[in-house]
Simulated scan of single mutants.
Amino acid sequence: MLTIPTRRRRAATILTLAAALALAAPMAEARPGGSSGGMGSRGSRTYAPPSATTTAPTTAAPIQRSQTQPSMGNPGMSPAAAQRPRFGGGFMAGLLGAGLLGALLGGGFFGGLGGIASFIGLLLQVGLVVLLVAFAVRWFRRRQGVPAAAGHARSELGANGIGGDRMGGNGLGAGNTGMGRGPAPVQPVQTRPVQIGPGDFQSFEIALNGVQEAYGREDVQALRNLATPEMAGYFIEELRANEAKGVVNRISDVKLLQGDLSEAWGEGNAEYATVAMRYAIKDVTLDRRTNQVVETGEPEAVELWTFVRERGGRWILSAIQQGR
């Protein structure tokens, strides 16, 4: 049986390792979008990972900030998965965490029991978890208005045929009115291939330099001309946050080292292109008052930039995702 000091040493060791891992986390990059992981919109592919390329052979960071709502048109996530409360996530994790902490300190939920008493304590723990789960399920059902008898009601509604009703309905998907009928399914967005040529790649490189330099100058108007309103809004938020912290991000010497196309497609009148780019950059964060260096970013970056345009129009930035 572990002594009290041994238990405390084990808990202290776990906490020390956790702190060391936190301190070892990579430094956040101050360049535009560098600390977001992924932000912006890629049309119907916003929540789908871009195709790997030679420049970015691993999966890019997923989009975490976007004004594009998840839907059936976005294959990475469904609306139900995005909005449904996940019972068993935080709730069960809390129970598990409590049990784990108790184990580190020498016991479960009812630490201090030994021998047969420990076995009885285990049974009590299992019973408590079962009761809590049953209570939570009933509570969620009542909150969502799904009584236990709802299944029987649906069975009666289907007695006159699949999806039919007693008012002379036309079956599954016949309409959006009446009981037992859901909304019409969302049709996937139709896409088409888009050809990308040397002139397009030149535009992407010019945009890379333009966005970085405008961000370093804190030139809001230039950012609005080079990016979608959504992306310009994110950049402005970052610049205001820097101002509030009393720092300024200076960017210079941006040079594209390698780049290749990940995906190019069209949706309606819009055309999209996601490009993987590895580029050199001088990224320094300075104190606004003293002009002293507060933070220095990595000299190179690998990112996937998505551009959008109307047919025959000018490419502008619509999303940034960090390479891994």
Rank of each mutant, 00 (worst) to 15 (best):
T3N: 15
R7I: 12
A12E: 12
A12F: 12
T16V: 11
A18I: 15
A20V: 10
A22V: 08
L23F: 13
P26M: 13
M27E: 08
A28D: 14
E29D: 13
R31V: 00
R31Y: 11
P32C: 01
P32G: 01
G33K: 06
S44P: 08
R45P: 03
T46C: 06
P50Q: 04
T53K: 01
A56T: 02
P57L: 04
T58Q: 14
Q69K: 13
N74K: 03
N74H: 13
P75A: 06
S78F: 11
S78G: 14
P79M: 14
A81P: 04
P85F: 14
F87V: 10
G89R: 15
M92G: 03
G94C: 09
L95K: 05
L95W: 12
L96F: 15
L100S: 11
G102Q: 01
A103Q: 12
G112Y: 05
G112V: 01
L113N: 12
L113I: 00
L113F: 08
L113D: 07
G114N: 08
A117K: 12
L122N: 03
Q125C: 08
G127K: 06
L128P: 00
V129F: 10
L131R: 09
L131W: 08
L132T: 09
V133E: 07
V133K: 02
V137G: 00
R138C: 07
W139I: 02
G145F: 04
V146P: 01
V146F: 11
A149L: 09
A150D: 11
A150C: 06
E156F: 12
G158S: 12
G161M: 00
D165Y: 02
D165M: 02
D165H: 02
R166V: 02
M167R: 13
A174S: 12
N176K: 14
G178C: 01
G180I: 10
R181Y: 03
R181H: 14
R181E: 08
P183G: 09
P185M: 13
T191H: 01
V194M: 05
G199N: 14
F201I: 11
Q202A: 15
A207Y: 06
L208H: 08
N209C: 14
V211E: 03
Q212N: 15
Y215M: 13
Q221N: 10
R224V: 06
N225I: 07
P229H: 03
P229V: 02
M231F: 02
G233F: 04
G233L: 06
F235N: 00
E243S: 07
A244Y: 04
K245N: 15
K245W: 11
I251V: 12
V254D: 04
E263D: 15
W265M: 03
G266N: 02
G268R: 00
G268V: 01
Y272H: 01
A280L: 05
V284Q: 10
V284M: 10
V284A: 07
D287K: 11
R288G: 07
T290D: 06
N291G: 10
E295L: 15
T296F: 04
G297T: 06
W305N: 03
W305E: 01
F307C: 05
V308R: 03
R309N: 01
R309V: 02
R309S: 00
G312R: 08
L317Y: 00
L317T: 10
S318Y: 02
A319Y: 07
